[in-house]
């Protein structure tokens, strides 16, 4: 099995404190992978290193058969590795549709020259992208807020918006940082369904950090458990969560 996304021996320290200590993980093509762990276990730092926001002190990251260690986030996104953020980073003053459109892959319409020349070409490009954006907006059930400024959306809607914005970039793999945090149970179910659909019909792989264990267990095929900067267990979700050392580390043995 060749991995679509893999990290090997990733280390990261802040002020001498090891936040990531020799972390390795692999995500297969079209895979659904979960990462759980207590607060401070290093999950979000791992995402930041994998998506390029932070440079690793050691180790390699590869994606789609290419070594991407050291690439800027922008380049990784262009290769098809997208991410959402724990605290949504919507473009607050742009409308929902504009948020989608701004993320679309395009060559011409975002050059300074296109502002002055070739307006017809820009308009044609816009029409195509608009249809695609509206398609995803409908898919994510954001239709009634299409023309609202993204800053006015609810927390759950912002999560959907971030996911949709990522979809416009035509990704192969999306890293989701706590997609269910602060989201009501009905919407959790809805987001799960959408992720499954995207995985099934579009072949997009997902790596999901989540504290909502029940929802995650139902969603992912493979689960990694992190504690104090290390991966302490991995395997099939239900089996891993039943391991004593996972219970010990993750839930303090209460369950």
């Amino acid at each position: 099995m060749t991995a679509l996304l893999a990290a090997v021996g990733v280390c990261k320290s802040f002020d001498g404190f090891k936040v990531l200590d020799d972390v390795s993980f692999a995500v297969p093509e079209r895979g659904l992978t979960g990462i759980v762990g207590t607060n401070g276990a290093g999950k979000s730092t791992l995402f930041a290193v994998v998506s390029g926001q932070l440079d690793a002190d050691g180790g390699r990251v590869s994606f789609a058969d290419a070594d991407i260690t050291g690439l800027r986030p922008m380049r990784r996104a262009r290769l098809g590795l997208g991410r959402t953020f724990q605290v949504p980073r919507e473009f607050a003053h742009l409308t929902v549709r504009e948020n989608f459109l701004v993320a679309a892959r395009r060559e011409y319409g975002e050059t300074l020259g296109s502002v002055f020349f070739g307006w017809g070409r820009v308009q044609r490009e816009e029409r195509t992208l608009r249809d695609r954006a509206d398609g995803w907006i409908e898919f994510l059930n954001l239709k009634k807020v299409t023309d609202k400024p993204a800053g006015t959306l609810s927390g759950g809607q912002k999560k959907l918006l971030e996911l949709g914005r990522m979809l416009m970039t035509e990704p192969k793999c999306i890293l989701l940082d706590e997609p269910f945090a602060g989201v009501n149970p009905v919407l959790v179910e809805e987001i799960s369904t959408r992720i499954r659909e995207l995985n099934n019909s579009h072949g997009i792989a997902f790596v999901i950090i989540e504290h909502h264990l029940e929802a995650l267990k139902a969603l992912v095929q493979h689960l990694y458990v992190m504690d104090q900067g290390r991966v302490i267990a991995d395997g099939e979700a239900a089996a891993v969560l039943a391991e004593p050392r996972v219970l010990e580390a993750y839930m303090g043995g209460v369950i």
Binding site: P73, M74, R83, R89, V102, G109, V115
Partner: peptide
């Protein structure tokens, strides 16, 4: 004209959140 163009949309996105702009693969 510029503000309504895709170019203008992108500069406003930069104003709102530069990290997110990089995350969607734009420079």
């Amino acid at each position: 004209h510029l503000v309504r163009s895709p170019y203008g949309r992108l500069i406003q996105a930069i104003r709102d959140d530069e990290v997110a702009v990089e995350a969607i693969g734009k420079d």
